[in-house]
């Protein structure tokens, strides 16, 4: 790995941020586009998280939206609860702490059974856990009044709250009215921190151990590497970053529901598509792929009928550019000649 590789990644993110900010300031960005910037960034964050799990650890997880879901709900719950009592920036910071901590905790708990499995089996079980998380949250009714918390799995009437009580989680209707704390700048900062954590981890002794487990766990064990410990470490960090993406998500929309559209199987697969097309194990590629592939269908809305056709062509082109050995060879030739020039 080259010395300045990481710096280039940070520079790309900051440059993209600057470009969008200038476009917005000069009035060249429609309000529709402005609304897409935060989602684009949190999808980049979760793509980085998933790449840590799939590319660096080498375990295919297709339930990562479940961790995002946990981060989203726990943080939104906290923000709703403390909306009046805490100042905005502090509340948002604590929301991050809580969202990340809970996602990490669930990453650990789910990791205990899941990381005993391998390959397809691991993928299937993570998929199941992702769906379970979503469905369980859909069944929660939680309210608070002067007597404290009320909890039910049936409906909001069962809570038996006082009249002035505050219904926070309303079953499948989710959490309504989470403070709108997310913005593009915070999202970019979260993305930069996630990149910093993952890229630095890869270049440390723990990162090497994780990749050794990926490449050959029998040899890793015989070399004295604690396979279980390092698998868990990578999985928990990955879940925690996915939780951070969830915090950005829940503080960017008015009504947070644990719907399939955002946290279901399809959403997890979509993020996996970002990771695979950006290059498995290539963190910078994940960020670029997430941004391009998230924005593209939205930008092509005008072309209505041809939208999905163009999207699929872009997927194929990205696949060729990132995976075809001939094209990779050609890319290397071009970059090395550029370097010499």
């Amino acid at each position: 790995m080259k010395k300045h590789d990481n710096l280039i990644t940070y520079a790309v993110v900051i440059a993209a941020y600057a470009v969008f900010q200038i476009l917005a300031a000069t009035g060249n960005l429609s309000s529709h586009m402005k609304g897409l910037l935060v989602p684009m960034t949190y999808y980049a964050v979760i793509a980085v998280a998933l790449n840590l799990c799939v590319g660096i650890l080498g375990e295919l997880s297709i339930g990562h939206c479940g961790f995002m879901c946990i981060g989203a709900f726990t943080s939104a719950f906290f923000s709703k609860l403390t909306e009046e009592s805490l100042p905005g920036p502090l509340r948002f910071f604590l929301a991050f702490v809580i969202g990340i901590a809970f996602a990490a905790l669930f990453g650990f708990l789910i990791g205990i059974p899941v990381l005993r499995l391998k390959g397809d089996y691991l993928a299937i079980v993570t998929l199941a856990f992702g769906e379970i998380i979503k469905n369980v949250i859909n069944a929660f009714y939680i309210g608070v009044d002067s007597k404290g918390f009320h909890f039910s799995l049936k409906n909001s009437m069962e809570l038996g709250m006082e009249k002035e009580g505050n219904l926070i989680v309303n079953g499948a209707m989710g959490i309504t009215g989470t403070p709108h704390d997310s913005n593009f700048t915070v999202a970019i900062v979260v993305l930069l921190i996630s990149l910093f954590v993952v890229l630095n981890l890869v270049k440390s002794r723990d990162g090497r151990a994780i990749m050794a487990v990926r490449d050959n766990n029998i040899a890793a064990e015989a070399t004295g590497i604690n396979v279980t410990r390092y698998k868990m470490m990578a999985f928990v960090i990955s879940a925690a970053i996915a939780g951070a993406a969830g915090v950005l998500f829940s503080h960017n929309i008015t009504t947070l529901t644990a719907s399939s559209q955002y946290f279901g199987f399809n959403a997890s697969i979509m993020i996996l598509v970002y990771v695979v097309l950006g290059g498995i194990g290539n963190i910078r590629g994940s960020v670029i792929a997430a941004c391009v592939l998230y924005l593209l269908p939205e930008l092509l809305r005008g072309l209505n009928t041809y939208r999905m056709l163009i999207y699929s062509i872009v997927l194929i082109v990205m696949m060729i550019v990132n995976w075809s050995p001939k094209v990779i060879e050609w890319r290397k030739r071009v970059t090395s000649s550029l370097r010499r020039a």
Binding site: R208, A209, A212, R214, D215, N216
Partner: peptide
């Protein structure tokens, strides 16, 4: 560790 450089194999 096939996908890692020679030196990283020793570093592990």
């Amino acid at each position: 560790f096939k996908n890692m450089p020679v030196i990283d194999n020793v570093k592990v």
